[in-house]
Design a protein around this nucleic acid. Sequence first.
RNA 1: GUGCCCGUAGCUCAAUCGGAUAGAGCACCAGCCUUCUAAGCUGGGGGUUACAGGUUCGAUUCCUGUCGGGCACGCCA
Length: 585
Amino acid sequence: MTLPDSLNFKAHFIELFRTALQSLDVPAEPPNIELTRTKQSSHGDYSCNLAMHLAKPLRKKPQEIAQLLIERLPASAIIDKVEIAGAGFINLFINNAAKQQYLHHILHSKTDYGTSHLGQGRKIQVEFVSANPTGPLHVGHGRGAAIGASLANLLATAGFDVFREFYVNDAGRQMDILTVSTWLRYLAIHQVSIPFPQNAYQGDYVKAMAQQLQEQFAQSFVRQSERILENFPISALEIAITTDAELDQLIVNAKRILQQDYTLIHQFVLAEQLNDCRSDLLEFGIEYDQWFSEQSLYDSGLVSRTVQLLEEKDYLYLKDGAKWFRSTNFGDEKDRVVQRENGQFTYFASDIAYHLSKFERGFDLVINIWGADHHGYIARVKGALQALGVDPGKLEIALVQFAVLYRDGKKMPMSTRSGEFVTLRELRHEVGNDAARFFYAMRKSDQHLDFDLDLAKSQGNENPVYYVQYAHARICSVLAQWNGDLAMLSDTDTHTLSSPAELSLLQKLIDFPGTIEIAAKELSPHLITFYLRELASEFHGYYNSTRFLVDDKPLMYARLALIASVRQVLHNGLKLLGVSSPDKM
RNA sequence: GUGCCCGUAGCUCAAUCGGAUAGAGCACCAGCCUUCUAAGCUGGGGGUUACAGGUUCGAUUCCUGUCGGGCACGCCA
């Protein structure tokens, strides 16, 4: 018996059904051929509902059509039997030999097992986190980071050419506020005391940067408070409760009297924050291909070129001195400003330019991982792309809901405004990178996530991370005690693996590449966490019911080949999620 | 108020374009270690899928309405 070339059972069956369908007289558009894994073993291993979909166009009973399809199904070495069941399902039973031999494929493929050609090498960009470089990453960013990174891994494994990107908002007002905040803290060190505005950045990291500024530049940025507050609309004492407009005035004053020095401080705080962010994510197991600067879009003239393009296509109009984009033409609720009355481009304008640049760089598909609070933003970005002649279907946006931390069963309060939030770094140090990565990915991304800190730290069976890792460690332990030649297992005779537990475990291993494909297609890394828990669960059950290191050598080799395969798949799966697979626990 | 998302077991969540008897984990109860790691396993109870209609061979999934929750509605980013 030989396995089909593809080693992808599902694809193989779809091919068989396609052949059968062609020999049938089907009108116009034939339905898609769907093959699903069955939930019950009495329904076989795979099931096809094609006959039911043909019932209407062919004006025949599903059962009759199923019979016709079966008669025309080409012979396959791996199919044991075919049955018609229920309302017209065609159930396929795979023979044990095919499943047993599949282990050789897994053991030879090693870390490559699970890869597929779904993406056909198409260039896909995944942009994620993209937090403003105005402070440390917090636990909300952490979820976007974990999901984005795992999703990028999934897509790469499913055959896409993946490019990971972080968009750096280094051009906007927030950076100016951070610059001024740092400068004010620096001035305070030099006894130039100006009350610290409440809408400036409050965090201690700002004071730390001020200290570094002092160490690096001594007093070269000191200016007199009278000059800083020249023409200021309110009295010095009121600055602590300044409005946004007044804060903007403070920024203008700072730029005027600091001149070149302002740029130095700006560059300094930006570099500090980016380094912090980069190292934080690196420690979390996340690396990018590019950190894309928003400022570079202005410097290269792409922002003005983009707005000009929209203007030429007549999608802009003037109102109240500002330039508006007709996003309502593309289903948005209202039109949006791209250029303000004062001539400055809005964040939206640079964002359109950014998305245009993505497609100009030749990506076939673009995926944005956004916080769910940005959902109202989708329509206008897609609309702008469409206006520029880009197919908006090439942009997919995965929304990530917030993670809420629980300690002692109680919700932990969090508020960015007051600077009272848990940083990603604190979380990682408390629960460990493995638990953080796994927990963040455990739920569908557009669902709220309750992150139980106590559970993530616990070392018991109730902690799913340990549960999966423990299965891996157990297998390592058995193989270490056997102390034999692992390479030999790759070709060992596996025909003795025929107990229900063994066959079920085999099928679970066979499901791995398909699970990755679905998770990639649905942008749903959480499916991998479910898969791994199920695989670990089946293994633990098998472990408790069966002894591996037995005197019967062929039997032992077969069982070891099976658990070595389980180990490989656990390892490959955990790696997708950025979680380690320890040999010992 | 308008728009988007959501409502599934006591709790947290799954369910592969609409598929077969809606599944896991936690918690709870009862068992299993002189044998490869008990950080484990086995068994048990648990449901009108928020509610009311509709579409069809078939609905947790699609449509309409009601109730309840989250988010978004700036010439901020």
